[in-house]
Simulated assay, not measured.
Amino acid sequence: MDNKSVYWKRFRSLFTVFDAPLAILLFLIISTGIVTMYSAGLDWPGRVEHHIRNIVVAFFVMWIVANIPPQTLMRFAVPLYVLGVTLLIGVAMFGIVKNGSRRWLNVGTVVQPSEILKIALPLMLAWYFQKREGALRWKDFVIAVVILAIPAGLIAKQPDLGTTILVFVAGFSIIFFAGLSWRLLGALTIIGLASLPLVWKFLLHDYQRHRVEIMFDPTVDALGKGFHIIQSMIAVGSGGLTGKGWRGGTQSHLEFIPEHTTDFISAVYLEEFGFMGAAFLVTLYFLFVVRGLMIASNAPTLFSRLMAGAVTMIFFTYAFVNMGMVVGILPVVGVPLPFVSFGGTAMVTLGMGAGILMSIQHHRKLMKS
């Protein structure tokens, strides 16, 4: 065998960690995102270049994580969770305040610890249930809820409702997939519904209550908080069946849609590509979720199954909440569209999540061979 063949085999082996169906879906979603970002970022010099840079960084993170066996990932669960909660406590005590929210901490560089918990919390809960596999009792689920409630409560206090939702979904999906009984789930649901008036009155800030009220009737503050939703719905509705065409959206290019490269980029996409474009993108996310759940169902260990399920639910929640708030069925909470919206931290977090899915699938194949 000549040197070229040896080098080619080594190079190709570096990328065998990627799950082909998942990689193809990611490629299509990212390509759609770049095309949309080019249009949405016309008035933002360098925005497309920075977006592509974020994608490259996320791809590198995904590749690194995909090469790490799930057993090794499990070793990081406790220290990463403890680090994340410690930093959240630091934010509560010494955090940097921006726009009325205390979400950042200066540790030599400015970090947002809540992003760590999007991965650290499901890791911790998956590790916890793996250690108790075969001997689960109802008390174990109570402890798991406490493990979830600590970071979720600290993040909600900042306040950061969007990240709180994402962290809660990631953690609760682990608890559900671990075997939470329907009876206990029903009890928790009843308690949750009964506590909504208390949450509304004492836990939500005034602006958060206002966002929920605006969701039901944006016209009550049409020139204020409702402006975002109204203009977004106008953009979505004007897209019609096939859209106005690439770079042909008027709502975004005339600056009616706020944050049109981040939280509301899906409004730009829907205006320019219409219902057909929406069906295409929703199908891609749906297939991604289906593939993630398939990886979870075939995973060889409880830890792997729980992590794959949680990561898949994170992607689903990102996409569902973003599109829901753009069309006005959910309040605006600042959740980006996965691999489409501009944002370095979210892109890296999502890349890490995709890497975990690929690691689980790749190392399952290695165990079988």
Rank of each mutant, 00 (worst) to 15 (best):
W182Q: 12
F59S: 11
M37K: 05
G108Q: 05
L42M: 15
I190L: 11
A299G: 03
V85S: 05
P331M: 00
W8S: 15
T349S: 02
P338W: 04
F320M: 13
I295G: 08
S252Q: 11
F315W: 09
Y81C: 02
K131Y: 09
M325H: 01
F315Q: 06
W182M: 14
L28Q: 09
L204R: 04
L28Y: 10
I175F: 04
V290D: 09
Q251G: 00
A178C: 02
I356Q: 01
N298P: 01
I29P: 00
G343Q: 03
D206E: 11
L198H: 09
T261L: 02
T164H: 07
R211N: 03
Q251L: 00
R137I: 13
I174V: 15
W246L: 13
V332C: 03
M276Q: 11
P21R: 12
L193T: 10
V236E: 00
M358L: 11
L185M: 12
T36E: 06
N67A: 14
L88T: 06
F256V: 02
A23F: 13
G171Y: 01
F129A: 00
L330P: 07
R209D: 01
A66I: 00
P336G: 04
T109L: 14
T36S: 10
L204S: 01
G248F: 01
L198D: 12
I64L: 07
G328K: 00
R12G: 09
K9H: 15
L184M: 09
I52H: 11
H260Q: 12
A187S: 14
G84S: 13
V142T: 11
D19P: 10
L306K: 10
T109Q: 11
M367D: 14
W200P: 09
I257Q: 01
V212C: 04
I257N: 00
M358A: 13
F280G: 13
L287S: 02
A299F: 01
W246H: 09
T189Q: 00
P218A: 01
S304E: 11
T283L: 15
A308V: 03
F303M: 02
R137E: 15
S369W: 14
H363T: 02
L117S: 10
T32M: 02
G41H: 03
G134Q: 07
I68E: 08
G351H: 08
Y207P: 01
A120T: 10
F59P: 05
L148H: 12
S369T: 15
F202S: 13
Q208P: 06
H363N: 04
H205C: 05
P300G: 06
W44N: 14
G249L: 00
F339N: 02
F315V: 11
V311D: 07
F11I: 10
I165P: 07
S266R: 04
G95Q: 03
I29R: 06
A308W: 06
G344C: 08
V327L: 08
V146G: 09
R12L: 13
E259S: 08
M215A: 03
R305S: 12
M74A: 14
P113I: 11
T345Y: 07
R137G: 15
R102G: 08
S31C: 10
D221W: 02
